[in-house]
Structure formats: C-alpha cells, structure tokens
Nucleic acid binder design. Sequence first.
DNA 1: ATGAAAGCGCTAACAT
DNA 2: ATGTTAGCGCTTTCAT
Lengths: 338, 338
Amino acid sequence: MVTIKDIANRMGLHFTTVSKALRDHPDISNETKEKIAAVAEEMDYHPDSVAKSFKNRKSRTIGVIVPLIGNDFFASVISGIEEVIYDAGYTLMICQSNENVDREALHVSTMVSNQVAGVLIAVSKETTAADHLNILQRRDIKLVFFDRFLEHVNASRVVVDDYKGAFTLVDHLVKTGHKKIAHFSGSKGLTVSKSRLHGYVDALKKHDIPIDDELIIYGGFRESYGVGSFQQLMSKNIKPDAIFCVNDVVAVGAYQAIKSHGFHIPRDIAVAGFGNNTISSYLDPPLTTVKQSPHLIGKNAAQIIIKEIEQKNSEPKEKILDTELFIRQSTQMAMSKT
Amino acid sequence: MVTIKDIANRMGLHFTTVSKALRDHPDISNETKEKIAAVAEEMDYHPDSVAKSFKNRKSRTIGVIVPLIGNDFFASVISGIEEVIYDAGYTLMICQSNENVDREALHVSTMVSNQVAGVLIAVSKETTAADHLNILQRRDIKLVFFDRFLEHVNASRVVVDDYKGAFTLVDHLVKTGHKKIAHFSGSKGLTVSKSRLHGYVDALKKHDIPIDDELIIYGGFRESYGVGSFQQLMSKNIKPDAIFCVNDVVAVGAYQAIKSHGFHIPRDIAVAGFGNNTISSYLDPPLTTVKQSPHLIGKNAAQIIIKEIEQKNSEPKEKILDTELFIRQSTQMAMSKT
DNA sequence: ATGAAAGCGCTAACAT
DNA sequence: ATGTTAGCGCTTTCAT
C-alpha cells in the first residue's frame, strides 16, 4: 500500500509537502506539484479515505435511509441520489428501516459513528418524533428529508405535490361524471396520506360534492389494503362509482376485489391510483394515475444536501416537485387504444 | 463527543482499560466491564467507527456494485443483502455502474480507499476482464459475485440456475405443442445469456427439434430489444409459433410488436419470459415466466461474504439457486381464469 | 517554498 | 487485572 510517505521518500521530500501538493495547497510550487502528481500516478497511489475521514472528522459518505430498498419508488429515488452523489465525489451508505423506528434509530447511530457528511431520509410509517434525528443536528451532520418527512423538524425536504396531484386527479374524476368517489387512504399519520386526502376533499368541495366519511377508508400502502378496503365498503352496502386509491399498489388490490365482486372497471366503478408504477400501464384496464418522479426526487434531494454540506449557513428549503396526471382506461369508458 | 478517554477520566481508569472492557477482552474483570459499560451508556458514548476502521485497516462496511439500483431485480437483491448485512453488524456502501466498466472500476477504487471488508458485485454488460477487481484480492478484500460473474475469476458466486430454468421453460413450450420456437437472447457476452441460450438449445435437442440460427436473435435486456428482435424476424418473413425472451422486460417489448402486427398471444404466437417481474402477472395475457428469487440471491451472497470475511481460508464456492416455472396464459390457449 | 511536530481515537504489544 | 507506549495516514500549525 502506497502512502504519501512512500512518495516523499522516493522523491527526497517531506511527506507533508506531498500532502499539501496533492491537495493543491498554495504553499507548493507548481513545478513540485506536477512532479509529485506524476510520481503518485506512477506509484499507483490511492489516498486512504478512512485516514482522511478520521483526521477530518468527516467523510465523503452520505447516508440514505428508506423504508424498503426493494420498493419500486424508493429504488428509483436511490438511483437518482446515486447519480448526483457520485458525480460530486461522494459515496452512499444505504439502509432500510423496514418501517421500523427503532431500526431507523440504529441506522442513524451507525451513520453518526461512520462520520457521514449528511443523511437523506424517508421516515418510516411509525416515525412521529425526531429524537433519533436530533443527534445529527447536534453533530452538524446535514439532514434532508425526501418523500416522507416530519413537519416540525427544521430541515430541507423534497416532496412531490401530493395535494395538487390528488386534487387534479379527483377533479378529473368529477368532470368525467363520477359523483360517489371513495378514497382508500394510506397510513393515517403520514403526510403523504394527509395531503392526498386533503386534495381529494378540496376537489370534491370545489364541485359542491359533500364529503361522506363512510367513503374514506384508512389503511396502508399494500395490495391487501386495496382488497380489504373494498370489502369494507361492500359489507356496508356502499357502492361508489369511482375509487381514488392512495397508490397504484392499493389500486391493484382494489382491482381484484372489484372484479371478484363481478363489477366492471370502469363501467361500474372507475379506479385511479397514485405513483405511476411500472405495473400501472400493464393492468387490465390500464390504470389512471398520477406520475411522481422518484428519480428526480432523488436527484433534487442529493443536490440539496451536497450544497448544504459544502457551503456554510444555508437555510433549510422545501422543494416541491410537480406531478402529472396520466389518464388511462380505468377512468374512461369511451375509447380504447386496442 | 464522548471518547474512551472521557470514560476513563471519569472513572479514574486508563483509557486502554476502557477500550479492552468495551471489546469484552478477557484481561478485564467482569465487575469492571459492567461498570464501564454502565458509564459508557450513561455518557452516551458512541464508538468512532472511522477511527476503528483506520486503526484496524478494515471497516465493517461491505460494498455492493450493481448495474442499476432502480432495476426491479437488483433492488430486490440489494434488499436481501441489506437484511443479512445489517443483522451481522455491517453496513452497506452501494454504487451503480450504469453498465459501464470504467465507472465500475472507479467504484472499486473508492471502495478500496474506504477499506471495505468485502465487495459484492454483479458486473456490467461491458465487463469482460477482471483487471479492476484484482486489486481487491491483492488487498485481501473479499469478493463475491452475484447474478453476473466472470468465469475465470477465483471468487465465490451466487447465481440462479439459468440453464435449468430455460431448459424447463422451453421443454414446456415444446410439450404444449410449439415447434418453431424463437429465442430473443440478451447481451452476447454475459453468462446469463449464454446459460439461457444453452438451456433453450438443449431442450430443443431433447425433442429432436433442429436448432435454427435464424430463430435466435441477440440483443439486450430492455423493452426495445423485444420490439426490435420481433421486427427483425418479420423482416425476414419468419413467423415463430413461440418466443422465449431472455427476460420479462424484453417480453413486454415482444408483446407490443406482436400485437401491433395483428397477431394474438398465445393463439398465433406464445410468449415466455424470464424473471417473474412484478409486471409479468399483470400483462395481457399474463406472462409465462421463470421465477428467480432476487431477494434470496442477495441473502445468500451476503451470508457467503460475511463468512469469508470472518473466517480464514475459506474456499470459493458457487451457490446455484433453483428457479420455478410459472405457467400463465401467454403460453396456454385452453383455459383462462376469468 | 519546504520541513518539523503534534495529534485525531483507537488497538496491540508490552510492561507492571 | 490494569497501565504504558507507540503508531496507523493524514492534516494543521508552526518553524525554518
């Protein structure tokens, strides 16, 4: 293993001179710098990042905590993060919380121990308090939320405009003639759920449609909740003419339940999702949904945290990314491509 | 920031005593160990992982390099890796090569700089030589391949039984009456492609069906290759009665091309994929495919590398995971669920 | 412009 | 059973 001392010995210089030269310190003459760079190259010198992190008390690693890496959405976010991070010369440390606060806290602690320069996080479903995140602020480790955040924490965040996305979608449903629109909402505490519900409510209000609490079913983000929520409606003898599901996966569950009850989509019941997952265009019928750009969320979050790491005293900012409505056959009866 | 020295000072002990106690060294009495543990807890001591890595010249971080994090398959693999790694007290450093060898090499170099204990890699499409991986072996950093590997490198690997999966699938196609079976193969150099092709060839041979080179089209792993490959067949006026695509994504492309040429799946042309991606059961018609277990691949790869890191002189091993044939409507005409 | 010395937190080899 | 010392590779401060 080649160190700066080896280079220095070979050249008859002191190792601090080499250190300075390699970091382009003004003390060193250009001539010397060039010579040192050449020898370093020739000797196949690789700086020891760990030693650097140790000395500087800060690494060029950025931590990412997501509920689940395997999830379509988060996988794309991570991919976006990686691109930006990599170009800026950082590396990623990735953990999944499995929607568990304790595990999330442990990950934060590991990241602190590893002197990460910053942490990007989409909090777990269970996370309501920020106690385990405070340590980051105390140690001057930058914190940026993406997608799922804690409202009362003073940190930057990148989110999609869930409210507007939901509003636009439900507005579309009403405009295409639907009057009894149910909403299968996600986990009650999360801001995403709240914002989408809020958009749903406001869109109905705009059209003077009264809000019927029985049409709003809380649940979670998995397929089974789509099935369960629909069965709940059925058991109460409620048949909506449209359902806005909190995400595409829940919509898939709803599809199954609706079909197994012998209803036709969209003739009897229209269905819409949120997320524009890969599956949504392959469903039968293709699902109307709201496109988020997870990759873009990742890129934005990464850009923000790098900026915050590299420049002093930046103010926390909120980046709200636009969504896009994708109208497919699950909400329109009229035409069909094929 | 609390260090072992702070604990030692507080207790009137020497800091090395604290160091030993915290690492459960036999030198220290149980009584002292307990007292030290209690004080450490009380003072909210967090060991400095970076300092440890620096001193030990080895971290508890494991690097993972995949072509693309956002990919369904790799995202699940990573998720599986993370689970095992986490339970063993390691953390993950994740990078994507974007199917680019140079970028892959840079990632390896970064990981070496970061003193990772091991590297898990699925090589890029372009990767044919192992020059950039040799440095790992020289530095005694464990290397384990998963899914995509280099045959001539002496390192453990975890792969799915592509040969058997493909063989079983094509055997099924023949048994269900197909005679002119095309194969849309992946990137020519990769072992996955070769193995699946090999399974295809052997299955045909078993049934005394001659191999027709014109029915084998090389390409890649994306949707567009499915479209392109089918058009290539059409332009040569070749109409197969079944197509075995190297993966599900290519099958999606094939679906589009087949449908746009006015053919019916499976009546005119049966289609089968490989991978059992989420989309495959939602396609119209649902796609017959071979299930791999990416999550299991990840878990196995992680277990192997941890074992190799923690015990000396382990022999490289090859773990071949079984596949499972999922027969759906894209290859059967007779019945239909709905 | 270059060199010397100190020290980051921790571990290991060697005292006591 | 506990303490002492040295040093990992690097950066920073202070000479020369």
